[in-house]
Simulated assay, not measured.
Amino acid sequence: MDARGATGVPNLRARTRAVPRATRFVALGDSLTEGVGDPVGGGRRGWAALLAAGIGGPGAPAVFRNLAVSGALTKDVAESQTPAALAFDPDIASVVVGVNDTLRRTFDIADLALRLDNVCSALAARNAVLLTACLPDPGAMFGLPAPLARPLARRQRAVNAVVHALSDRYDAVHLHAAGDAWVADRSMWSADRLHPGERGHRMLARRFHELLAARGLAQGAAPEAEPDQPRPTRAASLLWLATAGTGWMARRCTDLLPQLLRLAGVEVQHWARGTSARLDRSAEHALLSALAVVSRDVPLATMGE
């Protein structure tokens, strides 16, 4: 019998190598994993790089590669990042993506679920231990009014439900980061209120390290909780918002805003008629249909966290 369970999914705990080597850790995803909000030395660091330093044991640092790109969608992760990750032959692979998908007019939970399933399947087939996370919805982070926030919240809940189901299927190291107290802690976030600051990135790294250590997959020390970089001044934060932040908003306005306004209009109409529950049922049905295709061997998740 090989290292596969009854579902055909590789048994990650059974991974062995004939020749010992340094742990190889690859990170896939978007700006969160790329390190936006944690600038260091003219570049970006982020939670994945902080975690990598604590995975290998003394004298055997992990070999780390960060493939995450700001603005990436699940499509980008599936088509561009995954082939590079497979070529890297990782022992551990983080796949944290989906928020950008919720901010696009092309959002389709079935397509997203299928792409993520393909990514996870390809990495698991190489016996890589997967790291995943569910995340807070961007509408709440931006503090948008209810008619605008509700459609985004439904989308992010659906993404999180897919991530939960796939994490179960592939025995991933999964971090619940959607509804924790850290979301409301302003000190954890950067000026844009969408990306963690250094303190937030360190918190994510420490929590992933704790989960990995529990499986015997992190031999080094956990990252420090306190920042080692000076916190950006208010002037620097305002400058960022006026430059990079404004550019980000302008790009999203050409894509997201028309669709979001349409969704908000539908939301208001249903609220006025007292039929808002129909929108929730429609989103739930779309989610269950998507999960029925990609996760036949695990209980169907619901639109919870």
Rank of each mutant, 00 (worst) to 15 (best):
Ala292Trp: 01
Leu287His: 02
Leu28Phe: 09
Ala48Gln: 14
Ser276His: 03
Glu305Lys: 04
Ala6Asp: 09
Ala218Thr: 02
His164Pro: 01
Gly57Gln: 08
Ala125Pro: 04
Pro145Asn: 13
Pro258Ile: 03
Arg234Asp: 04
Ala272Tyr: 01
Ala301Lys: 03
Ala149Thr: 06
Phe142Glu: 02
Val183Met: 15
Arg45Phe: 06
Leu257Cys: 08
Pro258Gln: 13
Ala214Cys: 13
Thr254Phe: 09
Asp101Cys: 02
Val40Ile: 06
Thr102Gly: 00
Val268Ala: 10
Arg104Glu: 01
Ala250Val: 15
Gly71Cys: 05
Arg65Ala: 15
Asp117Glu: 11
Val9Asn: 00
Arg17Lys: 10
Gln269Cys: 07
Thr233Arg: 14
Ala78Lys: 01
Glu34Gln: 15
Leu28Gly: 04
Val77Gln: 05
Cys253Phe: 06
Gly56Tyr: 05
Ser121Trp: 09
Val268Gln: 03
Arg169Asp: 04
Glu226Val: 05
Ser237Leu: 12
Gly37Met: 11
Glu267His: 13
Cys120Gly: 06
Arg126Lys: 14
Thr254Cys: 07
Arg104Pro: 01
Thr33Lys: 11
Gly274His: 12
Ala222Lys: 10
Val268Pro: 03
Ala146Leu: 15
Ala133Trp: 01
Trp248Cys: 01
Thr16Ser: 13
Asp76Asn: 09
Thr82Trp: 12
Ala140Tyr: 11
Arg155Ser: 05
Met141Cys: 15
Thr243Glu: 11
Gly139Ile: 00
Val99Tyr: 01
Trp47His: 15
Arg215Cys: 10
Ala214Glu: 15
Ala125Cys: 03
Arg104Tyr: 03
Asp101Gln: 02
Arg157Tyr: 03
Gly59Val: 14
Val159Ala: 00
Thr16Asp: 09
Pro232Cys: 12
Gly5Thr: 05
